[in-house]
Design a protein around this nucleic acid. Structure first.
Ligand SMILES: [Mn+2]
Ligand SMILES: [Mn+2]
Ligand SMILES: [Mn+2]
Ligand SMILES: [Mn+2]
Lengths: 223, 223
DNA sequence: CAAGCGTTTTAGACACGCTTAAAACTCTTT
DNA sequence: AAAGAGTTTTAAGCGTGTCTAAAACGCTTG
């Protein structure tokens, strides 16, 4: 009936577009993300383009049409609301909810999603800090900075942790750096790009792989 | 990945087997239930038989293997637990939960199902009164009688309402005959087989279509 | 500017799940 | 026992979604 794989492709194209807003999304990047061959991605692109969900030029990558973006945002909405539900209501560890939500997101009727949203009291973000689109596709776009790009002395709040970096969620949890945590940058090493932070009185040295997977929000931005 | 349609076939074969435990399940009955052609059912039977989930003899119907029954019971468990969840937690009307659960039942990881069961405090039945298998496939099998087969004067509790009779759930709700309701048979018409019942002080005349879709439980069965 | 390399598309194949139309079978009825 | 009716299976075809292997493309480099 409803496209199963289609939805994942659309959502992944949207995610890749966000990560690199300037150029179009390449066949290879989608294939990598989806874990399929480039040939499979090409075949899917043709079907999606035929149905006016993406614009596809041979050898030129893809971009979402307004209609395709609506569908993609619907998938992200379901994905992130389900993640919230799994974490907050069923108490499933946040390391696992992305995988489960990826399975469930395609099988949730709108009414179920909308009622979950009410039950959860209209959350703004998923447990990892990514915004949840409302039923019209609108969502908050706060000013976030990568932890990597902070200067020494800055005091910030963790806003978002990339859920697809292997092992990162567990590591972040151990360090007490979940979304909402406060931290201060106490040092930066200009050679290896390590960042030293303090949180709850403890200091940690974070490598680049970590500091470029965590987004933060400046405190007291009035001034 | 995991068979989508396969699961529905297995669960429907199980349901049909329960409704008519003596003879094997015919191709046509499965096709009707599933809303597909007999040719489609035959093709699916071959795949299921190839994978040792059913026993299939040409022109001789099908029956579940132990392995196939395990899978079928898993689907029923997910289906009925989700129905409970939708009704009790999300407050979705019981008329709709079967349709929604039919969609969701194939996309629920075991851990999600198990945690839902805990959240719901291990319910015995779905909102329509059908038993929920536990994670080993075991479930209560209470002694139920069709409302159709009651004698005048019997006092019973509604236990189960067939969720797939069009319009029945709404009708039953209007009459106050949801599972748990008490009623007494005050008359039976031997010609048209109508049954007159009393519940909460009001009398209703039920036709055969209704009385053979409602199961009840005798009260004070010690005697 | 031609060679080479990495990326992308095409070609051919396969499993699933569905369809319609025709053939085969079973069961009842004369 | 033969006919007929109803059921079931087979045959052929289609869309989805995946694969491998080969061809086409595009960009960088000598
Ligand atoms: Mn998904
Ligand atoms: Mn998330
Ligand atoms: Mn189903
Ligand atoms: Mn039910």
């Amino acid at each position: 009936m409803s496209g199963l794989a289609r939805e994942d492709y659309l959502a992944d194209i949207y995610r890749l577009q966000c990560e690199n807003p300037h150029d179009p999304v390449s066949t290879g990047s989608v294939a990598d993300r989806r874990g399929v061959t480039a040939a499979s991605a090409t075949a899917m692109f043709k079907r999606l383009a035929r149905d006016h969900l993406i614009v596809y030029r041979n050898y030129g990558g893809v971009s979402l049409t307004p209609e395709g973006q609506d569908l993609a945002l619907g998938v992200l909405r379901r994905h992130r609301l389900v993640e919230r539900f799994l974490a907050d209501v069923l108490h499933i560890p946040w390391q696992q909810v992305d995988t489960y939500a990826d399975q469930m997101e395609h099988a949730l009727p709108d009414e179920v999603v909308d009622r979950m949203e009410v039950l959860l009291e209209n959350p703004y973000t998923c447990p990892h800090g990514y915004p949840i689109p409302d039923k019209h596709g609108h969502f908050a776009q706060p000013d976030l900075i990568l932890l990597r790009d902070l200067s020494v002395g800055e005091q910030v709040r963790v806003a978002r942790v990339n859920e697809r970096v292997p092992g990162l969620l567990r590591y972040v949890e151990d360090l007490g750096l979940m979304p909402g945590s406060l931290l201060r940058v106490s040092a930066r090493n200009p050679v290896d790009l390590n960042v030293t932070i303090e949180t709850e009185g403890r200091a940690h040295i974070l490598g680049l792989r970590v500091s470029e997977a965590i987004w933060v929000e400046r405190l007291e931005s009035r001034g």
